[in-house]
Simulated scan of single mutants.
Amino acid sequence: MSERPVVNRLDRRKARTRAALLAAARQLLARGCSAEASIQEITDLADVGFGSFYNHFDTKAELLEAAVVEVLEEHGALLDEITADYDDLAQVFAASVRLTVLLHETHPQIARIITNAAPAYRNAPTSLGPRALRDLAKAQEAGRFDIDNPAIALACASGAILGVLNTLGDDPVPGVRHAADEVAVNLLRMFGLSGQEAREIVARPLPNPAQRKGER
């Protein structure tokens, strides 16, 4: 009985160390300098002991991959959460595109990591890529989108989104919301919707994650 709190404290300390290492990796990924960083620099940034790194990760590459997967899973889960009540598959897609571009304002670190980790954005097996592919396939099957291959459509969509995020860069800029709407309209039109319908869908208000959580 007396040993259980000690084990719990140890587990909590391990969890804090792992979280600190992942947070440091996210900072480096957002800065685009993760390739040059040493493990010593990572542990210094995380404010943990050098030796503790190897209690959680075997290599720097393993840590960086875990950080990217964490970010993409966080982003994908957010999009699932805030579009869950939509019945129109085209609106689900458009809202996801708009909210992803708006990460430049709302979650700038995530936006930079997505931009700097472009292949993982499309290809990570358990995060955003499969979610987007799922939504595109559903829209194709329902006849909502005129596409032949959802995987090619995903490549087109992710390329457009990444291009816009890269164009926006690191600093706050005016017109981010207009850019988010424009890329969503263009993609909807690419996938077979008329310009009028695409603009009508994109003009709909975006969901508010804070409000959704407050309703539960």
Score class of each variant (00 low, 15 high):
residue 2 S to K: 13
residue 3 E to V: 13
residue 4 R to V: 11
residue 10 L to N: 11
residue 10 L to F: 04
residue 11 D to V: 11
residue 14 K to I: 00
residue 15 A to L: 12
residue 15 A to G: 15
residue 16 R to Y: 03
residue 19 A to Q: 14
residue 24 A to M: 09
residue 28 L to A: 07
residue 36 E to W: 02
residue 36 E to G: 06
residue 39 I to E: 05
residue 39 I to Q: 10
residue 45 L to F: 03
residue 46 A to F: 04
residue 48 V to S: 05
residue 49 G to M: 08
residue 50 F to H: 13
residue 50 F to S: 09
residue 51 G to W: 08
residue 51 G to E: 13
residue 56 H to K: 01
residue 57 F to S: 05
residue 58 D to T: 15
residue 63 L to R: 06
residue 64 L to A: 00
residue 64 L to W: 04
residue 65 E to Y: 14
residue 70 E to M: 04
residue 73 E to T: 15
residue 73 E to A: 08
residue 77 A to Y: 08
residue 79 L to P: 04
residue 83 T to G: 09
residue 84 A to G: 03
residue 89 L to K: 04
residue 93 F to N: 03
residue 96 S to V: 05
residue 97 V to M: 03
residue 98 R to Y: 09
residue 98 R to E: 14
residue 100 T to S: 14
residue 101 V to T: 10
residue 101 V to S: 01
residue 102 L to C: 07
residue 108 P to C: 01
residue 118 A to L: 10
residue 120 A to R: 12
residue 123 N to A: 13
residue 124 A to H: 15
residue 124 A to M: 06
residue 125 P to C: 04
residue 134 R to V: 02
residue 134 R to E: 11
residue 135 D to H: 09
residue 139 A to R: 00
residue 140 Q to S: 12
residue 142 A to S: 09
residue 145 F to T: 10
residue 145 F to K: 07
residue 148 D to G: 15
residue 148 D to P: 11
residue 149 N to P: 02
residue 150 P to R: 00
residue 150 P to Q: 08
residue 152 I to S: 13
residue 153 A to C: 03
residue 155 A to W: 06
residue 156 C to V: 14
residue 157 A to W: 04
residue 158 S to E: 03
residue 162 L to T: 14
residue 166 N to W: 09
residue 167 T to D: 11
residue 168 L to G: 06
residue 170 D to N: 15
residue 174 P to N: 07
residue 175 G to F: 02
residue 178 H to F: 11
residue 178 H to N: 11
residue 180 A to V: 06
residue 182 E to L: 06
residue 190 M to N: 15
residue 191 F to Y: 12
residue 194 S to H: 10
residue 200 E to C: 00
residue 200 E to M: 03
residue 202 V to M: 02
residue 207 P to G: 05
residue 208 N to E: 13
residue 215 E to K: 14
residue 216 R to F: 05
